[in-house]
Write a protein that binds this DNA or RNA. Structure first.
Lengths: 147, 147
DNA sequence: TATTGTTATACTCTATAACTATA
DNA sequence: TATAGTTATAGAGTATAACAATA
Protein backbone atom coordinates (compact mmCIF):
# COMPACT_ATOMS: atom_id res chain seq x y z
CA UNK A 1 0.00 0.00 0.00
CA UNK A 2 3.01 2.32 0.60
CA UNK A 3 5.07 4.05 -2.03
CA UNK A 4 6.83 1.53 -4.18
CA UNK A 5 9.60 4.01 -4.93
CA UNK A 6 10.86 4.60 -1.39
CA UNK A 7 9.95 1.80 0.99
CA UNK A 8 8.96 3.08 4.45
CA UNK A 9 8.07 6.55 3.24
CA UNK A 10 4.30 6.84 2.96
CA UNK A 11 2.64 8.71 0.13
CA UNK A 12 0.33 11.63 0.83
CA UNK A 13 -2.66 9.31 0.39
CA UNK A 14 -1.14 6.81 2.84
CA UNK A 15 -0.55 9.55 5.38
CA UNK A 16 -4.10 10.85 5.05
CA UNK A 17 -5.42 7.36 5.66
CA UNK A 18 -3.15 6.84 8.67
CA UNK A 19 -4.11 10.19 10.20
CA UNK A 20 -7.80 9.53 9.53
CA UNK A 21 -7.52 6.16 11.29
CA UNK A 22 -5.85 7.74 14.34
CA UNK A 23 -8.42 10.55 14.36
CA UNK A 24 -11.32 8.10 14.13
CA UNK A 25 -9.96 5.95 16.93
CA UNK A 26 -9.28 8.96 19.13
CA UNK A 27 -12.80 10.35 18.72
CA UNK A 28 -14.21 6.90 19.36
CA UNK A 29 -12.34 6.87 22.65
CA UNK A 30 -13.60 10.37 23.44
CA UNK A 31 -17.22 9.45 22.64
CA UNK A 32 -16.97 6.31 24.76
CA UNK A 33 -15.60 8.28 27.73
CA UNK A 34 -18.38 10.87 27.34
CA UNK A 35 -21.04 8.13 27.10
CA UNK A 36 -19.79 6.56 30.33
CA UNK A 37 -20.78 9.84 31.96
CA UNK A 38 -24.14 10.13 30.17
CA UNK A 39 -23.09 12.64 27.51
CA UNK A 40 -22.87 12.66 23.72
CA UNK A 41 -19.60 13.80 22.15
CA UNK A 42 -21.16 17.11 21.13
CA UNK A 43 -22.27 17.75 24.70
CA UNK A 44 -18.82 16.84 26.05
CA UNK A 45 -17.17 19.04 23.44
CA UNK A 46 -19.45 21.92 24.46
CA UNK A 47 -18.67 21.35 28.14
CA UNK A 48 -14.97 21.55 27.29
CA UNK A 49 -15.52 24.79 25.35
CA UNK A 50 -17.29 26.37 28.28
CA UNK A 51 -14.64 26.08 30.99
CA UNK A 52 -14.43 29.85 30.88
CA UNK A 53 -17.77 31.70 30.48
CA UNK A 54 -18.68 32.06 26.77
CA UNK A 55 -21.58 33.81 25.02
CA UNK A 56 -23.90 31.51 23.04
CA UNK A 57 -22.77 33.01 19.73
CA UNK A 58 -19.09 32.49 20.47
CA UNK A 59 -19.81 28.93 21.60
CA UNK A 60 -21.35 28.22 18.20
CA UNK A 61 -18.11 29.44 16.65
CA UNK A 62 -16.01 27.17 18.85
CA UNK A 63 -18.20 24.17 18.09
CA UNK A 64 -18.21 24.94 14.37
CA UNK A 65 -21.99 24.76 14.03
CA UNK A 66 -24.89 27.13 13.54
CA UNK A 67 -25.99 29.24 16.51
CA UNK A 68 -29.46 27.69 16.44
CA UNK A 69 -28.02 24.31 17.44
CA UNK A 70 -26.34 25.64 20.55
CA UNK A 71 -29.69 26.36 22.16
CA UNK A 72 -30.56 22.66 22.30
CA UNK A 73 -27.10 21.49 23.34
CA UNK A 74 -26.91 23.97 26.22
CA UNK A 75 -30.53 23.16 27.15
CA UNK A 76 -29.51 19.53 27.70
CA UNK A 77 -26.37 20.43 29.66
CA UNK A 78 -28.48 22.79 31.77
CA UNK A 79 -31.13 20.14 32.47
CA UNK A 80 -28.31 17.86 33.67
CA UNK A 81 -27.05 20.58 35.98
CA UNK A 82 -23.69 20.78 34.20
CA UNK A 83 -23.96 24.31 32.74
CA UNK A 84 -26.02 27.47 33.18
CA UNK A 85 -26.94 30.70 31.37
CA UNK A 86 -26.30 34.20 32.72
CA UNK A 87 -27.47 37.47 31.22
CA UNK A 88 -24.59 39.72 30.17
CA UNK A 89 -24.50 43.06 31.98
CA UNK A 90 -23.17 45.09 29.06
CA UNK A 91 -25.56 43.83 26.35
CA UNK A 92 -28.85 42.39 27.49
CA UNK A 93 -29.21 40.42 24.24
CA UNK A 94 -26.32 38.08 24.98
CA UNK A 95 -26.45 35.10 27.31
CA UNK A 96 -23.24 33.78 28.76
CA UNK A 97 -22.86 30.04 29.29
CA UNK A 98 -21.02 28.98 32.44
CA UNK A 99 -19.94 25.58 33.69
CA UNK A 100 -21.21 24.45 37.09
CA UNK A 101 -19.07 22.67 39.72
CA UNK A 102 -20.81 19.43 38.73
CA UNK A 103 -19.99 20.17 35.09
CA UNK A 104 -16.34 20.77 35.92
CA UNK A 105 -16.20 17.48 37.83
CA UNK A 106 -17.81 15.59 34.94
CA UNK A 107 -15.39 17.15 32.46
CA UNK A 108 -12.42 16.17 34.60
CA UNK A 109 -13.79 12.64 34.95
CA UNK A 110 -14.16 12.31 31.17
CA UNK A 111 -10.58 13.48 30.67
CA UNK A 112 -9.29 10.99 33.21
CA UNK A 113 -11.43 8.29 31.63
CA UNK A 114 -9.84 8.39 28.18
CA UNK A 115 -7.84 5.31 29.03
CA UNK A 116 -6.90 4.17 25.53
CA UNK A 117 -5.82 7.65 24.49
CA UNK A 118 -3.63 7.95 27.57
CA UNK A 119 -2.07 4.55 26.88
CA UNK A 120 -1.48 5.42 23.23
CA UNK A 121 0.16 8.80 23.64
CA UNK A 122 1.80 7.86 26.93
CA UNK A 123 3.64 5.06 25.14
CA UNK A 124 5.73 7.54 23.15
CA UNK A 125 9.16 8.54 24.41
CA UNK A 126 10.31 12.17 24.66
CA UNK A 127 11.80 12.27 21.19
CA UNK A 128 8.66 10.81 19.64
CA UNK A 129 6.35 13.15 21.55
CA UNK A 130 8.38 16.13 20.43
CA UNK A 131 8.28 14.93 16.81
CA UNK A 132 4.52 14.29 16.84
CA UNK A 133 3.81 17.64 18.47
CA UNK A 134 5.96 19.44 15.91
CA UNK A 135 4.34 17.64 12.97
CA UNK A 136 0.87 18.50 14.27
CA UNK A 137 1.84 22.16 14.57
CA UNK A 138 3.16 22.15 11.01
CA UNK A 139 0.18 20.37 9.49
CA UNK A 140 -2.64 22.04 11.40
CA UNK A 141 -2.48 25.59 9.97
CA UNK A 142 -2.60 24.19 6.44
CA UNK A 143 -5.60 22.02 7.28
CA UNK A 144 -7.50 24.86 8.93
CA UNK A 145 -6.51 27.45 6.35
CA UNK A 146 -5.07 29.81 8.95
CA UNK A 147 -8.22 30.20 11.05
CA UNK B 1 0.53 25.35 27.32
CA UNK B 2 3.40 22.83 26.90
CA UNK B 3 5.23 21.05 29.68
CA UNK B 4 7.11 23.49 31.86
CA UNK B 5 9.64 20.82 32.75
CA UNK B 6 10.97 20.08 29.27
CA UNK B 7 10.32 22.88 26.81
CA UNK B 8 9.35 21.57 23.38
CA UNK B 9 8.26 18.16 24.66
CA UNK B 10 4.45 18.10 24.89
CA UNK B 11 2.67 16.34 27.75
CA UNK B 12 0.22 13.52 27.01
CA UNK B 13 -2.65 16.01 27.43
CA UNK B 14 -0.97 18.41 25.00
CA UNK B 15 -0.49 15.63 22.46
CA UNK B 16 -4.11 14.53 22.74
CA UNK B 17 -5.24 18.09 22.15
CA UNK B 18 -2.91 18.48 19.15
CA UNK B 19 -4.02 15.19 17.61
CA UNK B 20 -7.67 16.05 18.25
CA UNK B 21 -7.19 19.39 16.49
CA UNK B 22 -5.58 17.73 13.46
CA UNK B 23 -8.29 15.06 13.41
CA UNK B 24 -11.05 17.65 13.59
CA UNK B 25 -9.54 19.73 10.81
CA UNK B 26 -9.01 16.67 8.63
CA UNK B 27 -12.61 15.49 9.00
CA UNK B 28 -13.84 19.01 8.34
CA UNK B 29 -11.91 18.96 5.06
CA UNK B 30 -13.34 15.54 4.23
CA UNK B 31 -16.91 16.64 5.00
CA UNK B 32 -16.47 19.79 2.90
CA UNK B 33 -15.16 17.77 -0.05
CA UNK B 34 -18.08 15.34 0.26
CA UNK B 35 -20.59 18.21 0.49
CA UNK B 36 -19.21 19.75 -2.72
CA UNK B 37 -20.34 16.52 -4.37
CA UNK B 38 -23.74 16.40 -2.66
CA UNK B 39 -22.87 13.82 0.00
CA UNK B 40 -22.74 13.75 3.80
CA UNK B 41 -19.56 12.42 5.39
CA UNK B 42 -21.31 9.18 6.37
CA UNK B 43 -22.39 8.65 2.78
CA UNK B 44 -18.88 9.39 1.50
CA UNK B 45 -17.40 7.06 4.11
CA UNK B 46 -19.81 4.33 3.01
CA UNK B 47 -18.93 4.89 -0.64
CA UNK B 48 -15.27 4.48 0.29
CA UNK B 49 -16.03 1.25 2.17
CA UNK B 50 -17.82 -0.20 -0.82
CA UNK B 51 -15.11 -0.04 -3.45
CA UNK B 52 -15.13 -3.81 -3.37
CA UNK B 53 -18.57 -5.48 -3.05
CA UNK B 54 -19.56 -5.83 0.61
CA UNK B 55 -22.60 -7.43 2.30
CA UNK B 56 -24.83 -5.02 4.25
CA UNK B 57 -23.85 -6.61 7.56
CA UNK B 58 -20.12 -6.29 6.91
CA UNK B 59 -20.63 -2.68 5.79
CA UNK B 60 -22.19 -1.91 9.17
CA UNK B 61 -19.07 -3.31 10.78
CA UNK B 62 -16.80 -1.16 8.64
CA UNK B 63 -18.83 1.96 9.40
CA UNK B 64 -18.95 1.16 13.10
CA UNK B 65 -22.71 1.53 13.35
CA UNK B 66 -25.78 -0.68 13.78
CA UNK B 67 -26.92 -2.70 10.75
CA UNK B 68 -30.29 -0.94 10.73
CA UNK B 69 -28.65 2.36 9.83
CA UNK B 70 -26.97 0.97 6.75
CA UNK B 71 -30.31 0.44 5.06
CA UNK B 72 -30.98 4.19 4.92
CA UNK B 73 -27.44 5.16 3.99
CA UNK B 74 -27.33 2.70 1.09
CA UNK B 75 -30.89 3.73 0.10
CA UNK B 76 -29.65 7.30 -0.40
CA UNK B 77 -26.53 6.24 -2.31
CA UNK B 78 -28.73 4.03 -4.48
CA UNK B 79 -31.21 6.83 -5.20
CA UNK B 80 -28.25 8.96 -6.31
CA UNK B 81 -27.09 6.20 -8.63
CA UNK B 82 -23.79 5.77 -6.78
CA UNK B 83 -24.29 2.28 -5.38
CA UNK B 84 -26.50 -0.76 -5.89
CA UNK B 85 -27.64 -3.94 -4.14
CA UNK B 86 -27.17 -7.47 -5.51
CA UNK B 87 -28.58 -10.68 -4.07
CA UNK B 88 -25.87 -13.11 -3.00
CA UNK B 89 -25.93 -16.42 -4.85
CA UNK B 90 -24.83 -18.59 -1.93
CA UNK B 91 -27.20 -17.20 0.72
CA UNK B 92 -30.37 -15.51 -0.46
CA UNK B 93 -30.68 -13.57 2.79
CA UNK B 94 -27.61 -11.43 2.18
CA UNK B 95 -27.49 -8.42 -0.11
CA UNK B 96 -24.19 -7.26 -1.48
CA UNK B 97 -23.58 -3.56 -1.97
CA UNK B 98 -21.61 -2.57 -5.06
CA UNK B 99 -20.31 0.78 -6.25
CA UNK B 100 -21.47 2.02 -9.68
CA UNK B 101 -19.18 3.68 -12.25
CA UNK B 102 -20.76 7.02 -11.26
CA UNK B 103 -20.05 6.20 -7.61
CA UNK B 104 -16.43 5.42 -8.38
CA UNK B 105 -16.08 8.71 -10.25
CA UNK B 106 -17.63 10.65 -7.37
CA UNK B 107 -15.35 8.95 -4.85
CA UNK B 108 -12.28 9.77 -6.93
CA UNK B 109 -13.46 13.38 -7.27
CA UNK B 110 -13.89 13.69 -3.50
CA UNK B 111 -10.40 12.33 -2.96
CA UNK B 112 -8.91 14.78 -5.45
CA UNK B 113 -10.95 17.59 -3.89
CA UNK B 114 -9.45 17.36 -0.41
CA UNK B 115 -7.32 20.38 -1.12
CA UNK B 116 -6.32 21.37 2.39
CA UNK B 117 -5.42 17.82 3.35
CA UNK B 118 -3.24 17.47 0.27
CA UNK B 119 -1.52 20.77 1.04
CA UNK B 120 -0.98 19.81 4.68
CA UNK B 121 0.47 16.34 4.21
CA UNK B 122 2.18 17.24 0.95
CA UNK B 123 4.17 19.91 2.77
CA UNK B 124 6.10 17.30 4.76
CA UNK B 125 9.49 16.09 3.53
CA UNK B 126 10.43 12.41 3.30
CA UNK B 127 11.86 12.21 6.78
CA UNK B 128 8.80 13.84 8.30
CA UNK B 129 6.39 11.64 6.37
CA UNK B 130 8.22 8.56 7.50
CA UNK B 131 8.15 9.76 11.14
CA UNK B 132 4.44 10.62 11.06
CA UNK B 133 3.56 7.31 9.44
CA UNK B 134 5.60 5.39 12.00
CA UNK B 135 4.05 7.29 14.94
CA UNK B 136 0.55 6.64 13.62
CA UNK B 137 1.30 2.93 13.33
CA UNK B 138 2.60 2.85 16.91
CA UNK B 139 -0.30 4.80 18.41
CA UNK B 140 -3.19 3.28 16.47
CA UNK B 141 -3.26 -0.27 17.90
CA UNK B 142 -3.35 1.14 21.45
CA UNK B 143 -6.21 3.50 20.57
CA UNK B 144 -8.32 0.85 18.91
CA UNK B 145 -7.64 -1.69 21.61
CA UNK B 146 -6.12 -4.15 19.18
CA UNK B 147 -9.13 -4.49 16.86
C1' DT C 1 -31.11 48.50 10.61
C1' DA C 2 -28.24 45.04 12.63
C1' DT C 3 -27.43 41.50 16.09
C1' DT C 4 -28.49 37.83 19.82
C1' DG C 5 -30.81 34.09 21.04
C1' DT C 6 -34.77 31.32 20.13
C1' DT C 7 -38.28 28.69 17.63
C1' DA C 8 -40.07 26.04 13.65
C1' DT C 9 -39.00 22.88 10.22
C1' DA C 10 -36.75 19.32 7.78
C1' DC C 11 -33.09 15.99 6.99
C1' DT C 12 -29.50 12.81 8.50
C1' DC C 13 -27.36 9.73 11.75
C1' DT C 14 -27.80 6.84 15.60
C1' DA C 15 -29.57 2.83 18.60
C1' DT C 16 -33.27 -0.44 20.13
C1' DA C 17 -36.85 -3.47 19.22
C1' DA C 18 -39.88 -5.99 16.32
C1' DC C 19 -40.68 -8.01 11.89
C1' DT C 20 -39.72 -11.05 7.23
C1' DA C 21 -37.45 -14.21 4.71
C1' DT C 22 -34.30 -17.20 4.55
C1' DA C 23 -31.04 -20.71 6.56
C1' DT D 1 -33.61 -21.69 16.28
C1' DA D 2 -30.52 -18.46 14.35
C1' DT D 3 -29.15 -14.94 10.98
C1' DA D 4 -29.59 -10.99 7.20
C1' DG D 5 -31.95 -7.22 6.06
C1' DT D 6 -35.75 -4.15 6.88
C1' DT D 7 -39.09 -1.27 9.28
C1' DA D 8 -40.80 1.50 13.19
C1' DT D 9 -39.66 4.54 16.59
C1' DA D 10 -37.27 7.90 19.23
C1' DG D 11 -33.44 11.03 20.37
C1' DA D 12 -29.67 13.91 18.93
C1' DG D 13 -27.07 16.89 15.66
C1' DT D 14 -27.26 19.78 11.70
C1' DA D 15 -28.78 23.88 8.57
C1' DT D 16 -32.19 27.33 6.92
C1' DA D 17 -35.59 30.65 7.71
C1' DA D 18 -38.39 33.48 10.53
C1' DC D 19 -39.14 35.72 14.94
C1' DA D 20 -38.79 38.78 19.44
C1' DA D 21 -35.90 41.57 22.17
C1' DT D 22 -32.28 44.63 22.25
C1' DA D 23 -28.72 47.55 20.36
Amino acid sequence: MGSTLTPGVPTTADLMEAVAAVGTAYFHDFAAAAARHGLTSSQAKALKAVQEPVPMRALAGRLGCDASNVTGIVDRLESLGLAGREAAAADRRVKIVTITPAGARTLEAIRADMTRAHEAFGSLDEEQREALGRLCRQVLPLLTGGQ
